[in-house]
């Protein structure tokens, strides 16, 4: 008798090849006893409702980003990635795999009524502008689209920020409502065709990977799975996460290799450092939200010190 799991990702159809491998692996390894039905971003529930839907059982497993539900789970913003949080995939992975961090996440999600299954890692998350950027100073006269945490950091340099959903970026950039955006990496910008209006890609060296994803499951549904099935799912999700990161990396590299899509530059090291320092205010604000957040931020600071960044 077959068990069907409703898996909802926040991503769109562009990752369908990865999803198909994921579905095939689960089906094969379980001898067809376990099947995954996948829904793309917004298909069944809006991305900011993924946590709620998982805890209620409208969906069984969600692949989302902590910042979507940080209004409901205190650690959401921190685990999604704060400016200055980590600077390489290895560092981020080591941080989240460490026992104290893993415990905090498990506990926070348990409180929110879901099972924490693990992480996936994003990739480049930098600034795209219509005009070249050589320093933070340049940005003070430009309007930049950014989400809340980044916006706060930019705000401390008097850089004006605007929030717009991704779907509006193209029009907003092409018509000058905004002068730039921080939304993703080269591949995301190219997919949104933003290169038609803005071609200056500035690496901020602020956060890499620029975001992390989280997998969560409905407790009832998850606990009803046999240990064998749980193991199959965990392995398949880990593979899905790896594939996703590699796909992003390859995509970003392919845009760089094309050579004529964006003009790449790097923010001066001094400015990047300033961003990291300014980000401490945001870290502190997150730490103040709860005791658990304070603990997680402390671990983040410890890590940054060990890496020699603070």
């Amino acid at each position: 008798d077959t068990t069907r799991l409703r898996f909802h990702t926040f991503m769109g159809t562009e990752i369908d090849p990865i999803i198909e491998t994921f579905q095939d692996t689960v089906k094969e390894k379980s001898g067809g006893d376990l099947r995954v039905q996948v829904f793309h971003g917004g298909e069944l529930v809006a991305s900011d409702q993924l946590l709620e839907a998982t805890s209620k059982g409208s969906i069984d497993i969600a692949h989302g980003v902590g910042s979507y539900w940080s209004g409901q789970v205190d650690i959401g913003n921190i685990e999604a990635g704060l400016p200055g949080g980590w600077t390489s995939l290895e560092e981020a992975r080591a941080f989240f795999d460490s026992e104290p961090v893993d415990t905090i996440l498990t506990e926070a999600y348990e409180e929110a009524g879901v099972v924490y299954l693990g992480k996936a890692y994003g990739h480049d998350y930098d600034l795209l502008t219509k005009e070249p950027v050589t320093s933070l100073e340049d940005l003070k006269t430009r309007k930049i689209r950014a989400t809340s945490q980044i916006a706060k950091v930019l705000g401390s340099f008097d850089i004006p920020t605007v929030y717009l959903p991704a779907g509006e970026l193209y029009i907003a950039l092409s018509t000058g409502v905004i002068d730039g955006a921080i939304y993703g990496g080269p591949i995301e910008y190219e997919q949104l065709k933003l290169n038609e209006t803005a071609t200056h890609y500035t690496r901020l060296n602020m956060l890499m990977p620029g975001w992390t994803d989280t997998f969560i499951a409905n407790p009832e549904k998850w606990n009803a799975l046999s240990d064998e099935h749980k193991a199959i799912m965990e392995d398949a999700i880990a593979q899905y996460a790896t594939d996703l990161n590699e796909w992003l990396a390859a995509g970003n590299q392919s845009v760089v290799d094309k050579g004529d899509v964006f003009e790449f530059s790097v923010l001066p090291e001094e400015d990047s450092k300033q961003l990291t320092v300014a980000a401490q205010e945001v870290w502190q604000e997150e730490a103040d939200r709860s005791e658990r957040n304070a603990k997680l931020i402390e671990l983040l600071i410890e890590n940054a010190k060990a890496q020699g960044r603070l």
């Binding site: 529930v45 809006a46 409702q49 709620e52 839907a53 209620k56 059982g57 409208s58 959903p165």
Partner: peptide
């Protein structure tokens, strides 16, 4: 089709219809 969890889709549909600029 879904049992209790399915009913909650009504709430998420409601909120997404309200929360759209």
């Amino acid at each position: 089709i879904y049992g209790d969890g399915g009913l909650d889709l009504l709430i998420s549909s409601t909120f997404s219809a309200m929360d759209n600029f």
